[in-house]
Design a protein around this nucleic acid. Structure first.
Lengths: 121, 121
DNA sequence: CTCTTGTTTCGACATACGTCTAGCTTGACA
DNA sequence: TGTCAAGCTAGACGTATGTCGAAACAAGAG
């Protein structure tokens, strides 16, 4: 191997990790963060996420008809987004309402920040 | 359904899409972007990506020993990152060197920007 | 040319994932 | 209480994914 040295930088104390272009992620951090990206890695979930995040809150009854998919399938995807911590849900009467969790987005956005890094140059 | 109106906003002409919290993504946009998130949705690939992005370039021979995985498996993950457009590779003599593609990161980061959106409030 | 080392491709396998239908739970309302 | 609608859970099924070992390919050294 080339014996190249990888940079070693302290963790950002606020969020989970430094931007991925600042220092190499260790296995534990990757295991925490990868599921968040994975949750957004399906076109249906990405659209759901986008529909939810573009309004203060939205009813499942407004999400389902936007897709050519069965109700249970949409419900399944929403569950994955919930388990990833990207959205919150709340039942109010007959309907269930979903809201985005901004912290998760801020964390993911921060991870992708490449300004002032080797990759950003 | 609740007849709630989803916002309709012009596309950002520079990148592929507006931030996902600005307007709901349509199916075509989601089909383009989701594979990028999917590529980062595996812990091994996320670590690889991070190792690659934290230096100007890096040799496969420095990536492989960081994992408890066979060479072919690492090669497979690198191929997926390449096909997603997140990294570039170049053979120089015996070794193959990988570099991050900053444009892809900037685009993903922009998508996750929630400042000034309903979710960011 | 042949040997060695580094990397990718191929083929196989177990597991995870996306989707469906059927059935259940919750709440509203007559 | 009975009934209906919204949404979730359970189970099944086909496909995609992560992993491996073996083999092929690439480049340099002897």
């Amino acid at each position: 191997m080339s014996k190249q040295e990888l940079p070693v930088v302290d963790l950002n104390p606020v969020a989970c990790c430094s931007p991925i272009a600042v220092r190499p992620m260790d296995a534990d951090q990757a295991a925490v963060v990868a599921p968040l990206f994975k949750a957004l890695g399906d076109p249906v979930r990405l659209r759901l996420m986008s529909m939810i995040a573009s309004v203060p809150e939205i009813c499942v009854c407004d999400l389902t008809p936007a897709f050519d998919l069965s109700g249970p399938t949409i419900s399944h995807h929403l569950k994955l987004l919930r388990e990833a911590g990207l959205v919150d849900s709340e039942r109010r009467g007959t309907w269930v309402w979903y809201r985005a969790r901004p912290e998760a987005f801020r964390q993911l956005g921060a991870l992708l920040d490449i300004s002032g890094t080797p990759a950003g140059a």
